[in-house]
Amino acid sequence: MNVVSWPDRLLTLNDWIALPEDNSRWYELVEGVLVVSPRPVAKHQRAVWRLTAQLEPQLPEELGVLPEVELVIEPGTPSTVRVPDVLVGAAEGIEANLARWAPADVILVVEILSDGTKRTDRVTKLAEYAEVGIEYYWLVDLDEPVTLTAFHLIDEHYENVGEQTGRARLDLAGQPVIVDLPGLTGARAAD
Rank of each mutant, 00 (worst) to 15 (best):
L108D: 00
E135A: 15
Y136S: 07
W138D: 10
I134N: 06
D121H: 05
A130P: 04
V110L: 06
Y136K: 08
V140K: 01
R119C: 13
Y137P: 00
R119D: 12
E111T: 00
V140S: 01
A104S: 14
Y136D: 12
D105A: 13
Y129R: 02
L108K: 03
G116K: 02
A127R: 15
I134V: 14
D105K: 09
W138L: 06
E111P: 11
V132M: 02
V110T: 05
L142V: 03
S114I: 06
Y137W: 08
R119A: 14
D141C: 03
Y136Q: 13
T117G: 10
K118H: 10
L126I: 02
V132F: 02
K125S: 01
V132T: 12
R122V: 03
D105Y: 07
V110W: 01
L108E: 06
V106C: 11
E135T: 15
K125I: 02
D141P: 09
L108S: 07
T117P: 14
V106T: 14
L113W: 03
D141N: 12
G133R: 06
A127V: 11
Y137H: 04
A130D: 02
E135L: 15
A130F: 00
A104T: 11
I107D: 05
S114P: 05
V109H: 12
G116D: 10
W138Q: 13
I107A: 05
K125V: 03
W138K: 14
I112T: 02
T120Y: 14
D115G: 12
L126F: 13
V110C: 09
E111H: 08
I107P: 00
R119H: 10
I112Y: 04
I107Q: 06
R122S: 07
E128T: 00
V132D: 03
L139N: 00
Y137A: 00
G133D: 07
I134Y: 00
T120N: 12
V106I: 13
T124P: 12
T117Q: 07
V132W: 00
L142G: 04
S114W: 01
R122L: 15
T120C: 08
D121S: 10
Y136R: 13
L113G: 02
T124N: 10
I107S: 13
Y137E: 02
I107H: 00
E111V: 08
T120W: 11
V110K: 02
G133W: 04
D115H: 12
V110D: 00
V106F: 07
T124W: 14
V109Q: 10
E128A: 01
L142Q: 05
R122P: 00
I134K: 05
R122K: 08
L142D: 04
T124M: 10
E131H: 10
D121A: 08
L126K: 14
L139D: 01
R122W: 05
W138I: 09
D141V: 04
L113Y: 12
V110Y: 00
T117L: 08
S114R: 06
L113S: 07
D105E: 14
K125G: 07
T124E: 15
K118E: 15
E135D: 14
V109R: 09
Y129M: 06
R119K: 12
K118T: 08
I112A: 04
V140L: 04
